[in-house]
Design a binder for these strands. Structure first.
Lengths: 349, 349
DNA sequence: CTGAAAGCGCTTACAG
DNA sequence: CTGAAAGCGCTTACAG
């Protein structure tokens, strides 16, 4: 049989209201220590546990927070979620996580579901702006506070916590420039989404701000490892002496595609070509050579997002947050070669 | 103002019970089509949405399923979760996912929390057997059905869905043997957990079953990329002609550590040394050279687990499931070199 | 200091 | 065919 408050009350010889008061540690001056002890002991002996659903119904608070993500697999999502959950844990909140896998109709469906579940707030990462404005308005109607992470929502007004993408691109580019590279290739995702565009712009800006002339090449690879691999195979496959000595890839995945193509064509990294990535995937460290890249503070984004949401839930004012990425030096970057590049250089030594 | 059934009822000029009946599509013969239309229209006009908490309280069903994992970051966890969630989606269930990050006390806490939330079932992945038997008993007391994934729970009795680890190890080993390798090194995780042990045993068994004499070496690296990297650096670092021509690593991570060490010492893969991993991480394909490995059916494990749980929730009989892993051929394996191995072989050509 | 009562928003036997 | 009533397990003003 299920142990309810009534049951505990009977055992402790009090009414269920008293049980509620004692167990919630509320109105402490309103009952004697003796009663308190009796209740506590009865609850303990029966291993009583409150029914959170009932409490939620009564208090009009579900203790749930909704998290909407494009997918679960993507590199930094787990860390983001972890950050959110750790804050929730300390506040007796739970997260309900949904991943849309890029299907807009699922997005709408999940928002509705989360509303139905009476979540007390929502954190949304919507990289391709698939969330419609009217859905956002629905959330407002239900007084559900929303925080956008990494990317603004379509309304542009929802409080967001983001990472400075352009700064990351600048750090990567300036690192290559300071090593002496004067011809840099950018594997871009300019047309893919806002992060790709911001990284592209950060790269351009860094180059323009540099006092010397820099030769730049851009290839759109749309976050795709395959495209990066193929484009670099073609570009460096034919013996050329004027190929860029450095590559700034807009993601670790595309950087790894480039590296694989270069290694297969006999180039040495970083001796012949330097490569910088972006993201700091776990593999960035495991790969050969270790990938110099831009690390994003994934876990802190989650933490901040949840803290902001908490403030909103309590009706406190919030303002957007911008976090800074960081350059991680590994073995894939070095000064450019003294001799001009030539295919199969390393195999010939 | 919040739209409740009472509100819809008033608007449709019926009682709230009728609203409930119509909206739940139950007792269809119990009201006229006209009433039905009136209710439906009123609900629609008011954008009525049922309160799932209230329904759950009444029906004694939370529509939540708990998922307990060691972490969110580990390679195949996201796919596993996705499989679980997709099945849940089709059944109007939601998952509450907790990751313990290997802290046993968190495990106990989360189980309790999930009980408090009145989850209708639980899926648990507990690789290091941190869950205590009495916690499992508590779950039973609350009539919460449990499914173990990938690894048995401490009681050994909970229905489980697993992947045949020994078979995976056998597939990997036989692949190397069939290529002609007669000296194989196993980077093991024998002492780390049951998966490590099963993979180790599968390897041994495959070698013993082989008609020819096979030289085997074992190094315990405990799932650690670092340890694999260091051990292989040492073993292959000193010029030796008798080093194994093939490595079966108990995970992709350790395989990648080995590969990095080998490449740094000038060995060519697969020309000088063949390497097989285990897991099929996304990076297995992206690395240089593409990693031959054992793929585990991650998503299907999630699907099956949830389907089993569903059966249990409906009081139907269930039996354990064992899924088969699969060999994925890429570029890191080939026949052994004709000349004996020597350090820096490739650099010398 | 303690209890009786109302109510959160539903579902479902039970009458009529 | 429809409604009144009870009840899921809590919390919280309101009396006493």
């Amino acid at each position: 049989m299920r142990v309810t408050m009534a049951y505990v009350a009977r055992k402790a010889n009090v009414s269920h209201c008293t049980v509620s008061r004692v167990l919630n540690n509320k109105y402490r001056h309103k009952y004697t220590e003796a009663t308190r002890q009796r209740v506590l002991q009865a609850a303990d002996e029966l291993s009583y546990r409150p029914n959170i659903l009932a409490r939620g119904l009564r208090k009009q608070a579900s203790t749930f927070v909704g998290v909407l993500l494009p997918d679960l697999v993507n590199s930094f999502i787990p860390n983001l979620v972890q950050g959110i959950q750790d804050v929730c844990d300390s506040k007796d909140l739970s997260t309900v996580v949904y991943s849309t896998r890029l299907r807009p109709e699922r997005l709408e469906k999940y928002v509705q579901l989360l509303i139905d579940k009476r979540v007390e707030g929502m954190i949304i990462y919507d990289p391709f702006h698939q969330l419609q404005e009217r859905t956002l308005r629905r959330l407002q109607q239900h007084d559900i506070p929303v925080i956008a992470v990494l990317v603004d929502l379509c309304d542009g007004a929802t409080t967001s916590i983001k990472i400075d993408q352009a700064l990351g691109a600048r750090l990567a580019t300036e690192h290559l420039l300071s090593l002496g590279h004067r011809s840099i290739l950018h594997l871009s995702a300019e047309n893919a989404d806002s992060h790709g565009r911001e990284r592209y712009e950060g790269f351009l800006k860094a180059v323009q701000d540099y006092p010397h002339h820099i030769g730049t090449t851009m290839i759109e690879v749309d976050w795709s490892w395959d495209k990066a691999y193929e484009e670099i195979s073609v570009l460096y496959g034919n013996a050329r002496t004027d190929a860029p000595t450095a590559i700034f890839a807009s993601s670790d995945a595309t950087a790894l595609g480039a590296i694989k193509a270069l290694l297969e064509h006999g180039y040495r990294i970083p001796d012949d070509v330097s490569v910088v990535g972006f993201d700091d995937l776990p593999y960035a460290e495991m790969s050969y050579p270790g990938l110099t890249t831009i690390a994003q503070p994934k876990y802190p984004v989650g933490e901040h997002a949840m803290s902001l949401l908490l403030r909103m839930m309590h009706g406190q004012p919030v303002s957007p947050v911008l976090l800074e990425p960081q350059l991680i030096l590994r073995q894939s970057t070095a000064a450019p070669p003294e001799q001009p590049l030539a295919k199969g250089r390393s195999a010939a030594t």
